[in-house]
Every structure is written in C-alpha cells, then in structure tokens.
C-alpha cells in the first residue's frame, strides 16, 4: 500500500464528537458477519456431529479427539496419537514455509533491484510486478496447471531443447503445489520489501563502504537488519494465505495430497460431512495464524521502541 505519510504526525480530533457514529457501521458489519460467526464456529467445534452432515446441539469433544487420537477403525482401540491430521497440518506448514522461502529468495533481490532504480524506471518495474497481483488467482493457478502438464508447453520445450528425455511428472505432485503457492503469492513478498528498501537511507551503506566493509557484508549486516520489518511483513503475507490455500492443492496437487484448506472443505462440501470436525480444524488453523500474527505484532512494537 503506497502510504503517503506526508510530513510529521497529523493527530487531529476534528471529528471526535461523531467518531462513534463513523465507526459504528464497520463495527456492526464486521462484528455481526465475521466476529459472531467465528464465535459460532468455535461453539460448533464442541458440538456432536449429526450422521451425514449437520450438528446436534450436545456438547462433545469428539472433534478435537478425532484430530489428536487414533482409536482404530472401529473406535475401540486404546487411543494412540493420530498422525493423519497432524501430518496434514505439518505438511501445510512445510509447504507454506517452502513457498515463503522461495518467495523471499526471488522476491528480495527483485524488490531491492527495483527500489534502487532511478525514480522514472522504478515506476515501470513496480508496475510490471504489480500486474499479476491484480489478475484473478484462479486464472493464474489454471495457467500454471496448463504450463506444467505432462504434455504441456514446459515439458515440450524442455524435450525440444534436449534438457530431458521423457516428460517430467510435475502435475499432481507436492512440488507442483509448492510451485503454485510460490507463484500465487510472489507479488505479496516483493511489495512490502520494496516499500522498506525504498525508505532505506543509502548513506548507511556508503558510510560502511568508506570503512572498507565488503559489499555483501554491508547487505547482510546493515541493509537486511534495517529493512527487516518489510521482510517480515512480506513473509507473513505469503505464509498466512499459503497455509489455508485451497486452489493450488486442488488444481495442481490432483486433490490427492490434502492440505488444511482441502481437509476443511471436504468436511462441508465433500464426502466427509463432519461439521464439528471441520469447525475444529478451522479453529486450529485460525489459532496458528493468530499466534504468528501476535509474534509479528510483538516484534514490530519492539522494533519501534
């Protein structure tokens, strides 16, 4: 977001007598249509599932029990830790972290490069990076699916160039999901890092260079720590949506390897029809995201003091 912070603080209270009326619509709309639903979802996760979808209003811990414990096919084995769902979450976290790292590896140099262009060309570079962000995510995922098909253009091109002898199996693999997430959220990494680097005062680098610091040391020891808030913001903007992604696993992963998003979807739209379990899985996902955001908020307030 291009924040034109202008000059200095502009704290004003012109509208303070009516601020409650001004804020009321947003409180009401978000409170009623998001906060209450989330609370309701929390309640649902403690209800009893109705056979074949829906809930019975009886308190139950079955959803969380199912998530954590494996009681065998028939439900009467001594409970063991259930790895199926935990591994879906771990896999999703792994995929999301992988996507974040890939985005960072490509996104940081790109953002840095753009931010150090002269003002005129900088706008054009930035414009080029922004366009894909405005293109429908579904269309981008479908395009990626088309590109990496077994008989798709990428394989054809690599076969034609003699890089490979047989088509690479890319589609319906974990790698494809990884690639899809990386591709989907790459602009999210570039933009905040760009904003930080743009504000970076290169006098620091010059001072360090005057003291004969090697270039890469300057980058590591001086630039990186100063633009860290931008990097963290970028990482969060990539990590959080990747964690709950649905399109990439469904379209690129062949819907075979579940990620959190597909697991939850299956409980409401698919065969499983287990609402409390879907609500519980959603709550667990939400808690994970909120924990990440809290660390971020704490890191940020520490940076500011």
């Amino acid at each position: 977001m291009a924040a034109g912070t202008g000059s200095g603080k502009t704290i004003s209270a012109t509208f303070s007598p009516v601020r409650h009326w001004l804020l009321m619509p947003s409180w009401l709309v978000i409170g009623f249509f998001l906060l209450i639903p989330v609370v309701l979802m929390l309640i649902y996760s403690f209800l009893t599932k109705e056979f074949r979808g829906g809930v019975i209003w009886d308190f139950s811990l079955a959803a969380y029990d199912q998530f954590i414990f494996d009681r065998g096919l028939f439900g009467d084995d001594p409970p063991r830790i259930e790895w199926a769902y935990i591994s879906i979450f771990l896999r999703s976290i792994g995929q999301a972290m992988g996507a974040t790292v890939l985005c960072l590896l490509i996104g940081f140099p790109t953002a840095y490069f753009i931010a150090t262009r002269p003002a005129k060309t900088r706008a054009i570079w930035l414009f080029l990076v922004t366009i894909p962000y405005w293109v429908n995510l579904l269309i981008r995922t479908v395009s990626m699916k088309f590109l990496i098909r077994d008989n798709g253009p990428l394989n054809e091109a690599m076969l034609g160039l003699g890089l490979i002898d047989a088509p690479l199996q890319l589609i319906n693999t974990n790698f494809a999901v990884q690639l899809g997430l990386f591709y989907s959220y790459l602009p999210f990494m570039v933009l905040p890092i760009y904003a930080s680097v743009e504000r970076y005062n290169f006098a620091f680098s010059e001072a360090a260079a005057d003291l004969y610091a090697p270039k890469w040391t300057i980058l590591r020891r001086i630039v990186l720590p100063i633009v860290k808030p931008g990097i963290i913001a970028g990482c969060i903007l990539v990590f959080v949506p990747s964690l709950g992604a649905f399109l990439a696993p469904d379209l690129l992963g062949g819907a075979k390897t579940f990620m959190i998003g597909s697991l939850i979807e299956e409980q409401f739209k698919g065969n499983a029809g287990n609402w409390p379990f879907g609500a519980a899985a959603s709550m667990i996902l939400l808690s994970m995201v909120l924990i990440v955001l809290m660390f971020y908020a704490r890191a940020q307030s520490r940076d500011q003091t």
Binding site: G53, K269, G270, N271
Partner: peptide, 12 residues
C-alpha cells in the same frame, strides 16, 4: 460431482 457432495450441499 458426487452423490455425497450433493447431499452435503443440501444439508448445508
């Protein structure tokens, strides 16, 4: 695309 998905949607 499946009987079960149809049932789930109706019940949802």
């Amino acid at each position: 695309d499946s009987n079960e998905a149809m049932l789930a949607s109706l019940k949802a």
